[in-house]
Design a protein around this nucleic acid. Sequence first.
DNA 1: GATCAAGGCCAC
DNA 2: GTGGCCTTGATC
Length: 597
Amino acid sequence: MLLEMENHSTLLSLNMSPFNAANSNDSPMNNNQSSSPLPPQYNSPPISTPYSSCQQNMGMQHHYQQSMMMSQSMNNIDTSYLFSSSGVNTLSGIDMGASYQIAGVATSLTGGSIGDIPDTKDCIEELCPVCGDKVSGYHYGLLTCESCKGFFKRTVQNKKVYTCVAERSCHIDKTQRKRCPFCRFQKCLEVGMKLEAVRADRMRGGRNKFGPMYKRDRARKLQIMRQRQLAAQTLRGGLSGDMYSNQPGTSPFANIHIKQEIQIPQVSSLTSSPDSSPSPIAVALGQVNSSLVQPASNQHPALQIVGVPGGGHSSMAMSGGSENKLWAQANSTTTSPHSLSPKVFQFETVVPQGGSVSASSKVSPLIRDFVAAIDDREWQNSLYTLLQNQTYNQCEVDLFELMCKVLDQNLFSQVDWARNSIFFKDLKVDDQMKLLQHSWSDMLVLDHIHQRMHNNLPDETTLHNGQKFDLLNLGLLGVPSLADHFNDITVKLQDLKFDVSDYICIKFMLLLNPADVRGITNRKHVQEGYEQVQQALLEYTVTCYPQVQDKFHKMQQLLPEIHSLAARGEEHLYHKHCNGSAPTQTLLMEMLHAKRK
DNA sequence: GATCAAGGCCAC
DNA sequence: GTGGCCTTGATC
């Protein structure tokens, strides 16, 4: 009974990095970190999957979870990804999802009290995400043990090149971590240890700009811990006072208000390190016991999506602090050895392109807020970090697979943006999922158009290994033949002086379009949100672009074209997936399946 | 002055 | 090569 209630009370934070709540304006690099000492070669294909803490004992259980996921997910994407609640006892610090972190500390229903909240040091009583040993502090981006800290430092500083005598998927734990440095280093990267935190100049002492992130992470953990204790305390009170009965269908949370802090994982590690990197949905499905959390008669009764404490920008949850690498490189005094650089981008201001500053001052607060929440740097940082990490010491990577991974990451970004967005965030989970399932590909295409038009995203980049990566293909969802259509839409939008405000409003309209989505329970709210954005955009175009005749309607007329392109992309991806050519267990594939239910 | 995350040292 | 402990130095 107590255990079950504790499971109910588990406040979790699905997380993949200490830095999810980070302010994207924080650059992690210190001046004394003059360059990113990236080793030129590793034998590992590191995956950009910054998750942290509490990740071990992944072996059989996660394989089981994954297989369970495969059998369930086809018909059940619903709330698993985004809004899972966990019945898993996270308190022992074991077996968290690979891409997730439950940033809780030991708090039980039977011990502790609000008055004896431990300080943040107790938050660090976690286990090294690489090997499960005791954490000694923040090292190179996240909480790790002393030995993995040293191992990571030696590897990067000395540009070690390891090989794996097995299948590059060795299990890494405290007792076996010395057996395969290749897989150990791979896991270091997977969990989010940051190459750029190893100083090229070997300067001792001092602190770099990861400091604020560490601080935020601590604060966040402390907050979550307090919430946990509050919940536990409330439950204890409820128990002693017999405030609720355990009748079937009655959530013990019916009488308490607990916000579940839910964060969206970084893109899963997909195909690597199966013992440590199950997909997000595997984690969700494996750890969610819906019968525990959600009584059948009352789905999602206690779920409430909340913003990340600390005011982290929505897109930051994607990042795992990955903005750091790019800006570190951008600020580096040494030349990056590769062509992946943020310098190619120009981030535009939000003043309407065809308008004046005075016109921009007439922009509605709604649109201004929309635009202010855009963080394109983060999007691109995530993109380039992923590309960078995926190609270390790889002679040749499967470019389609890589594209799918990028799309998957973008999709997570998409979801996270939506999750924190006005109108959308107020909806029930089921409604949110339905809207996302309907609009994700349209939004991916639109996002790419935006990045290309407004931030000079190139159509191609050279990977670390010299391969050319077709960035435009991301916008085409992998269908090169759609390039003409894509360019045609782009040209039309350019003719309409499509700007950032237009983009974000259109994106909202794609997301909040209730017309084609069946089964929306709170259709009224969605409709109202849609209409508000529509109205704001209409006024904006009339006010700021009087010279563009009928801009609003002409833009609206392009939406079916975007949808058509995205639909063809979806078909292509689905086909590739069915052929076994696309990575499985990705949010991308789940979305593809969800539409075909 | 305290903190703490860097790099360094050295016994194993 | 590993990993526990030490030194350093920027930040609070």
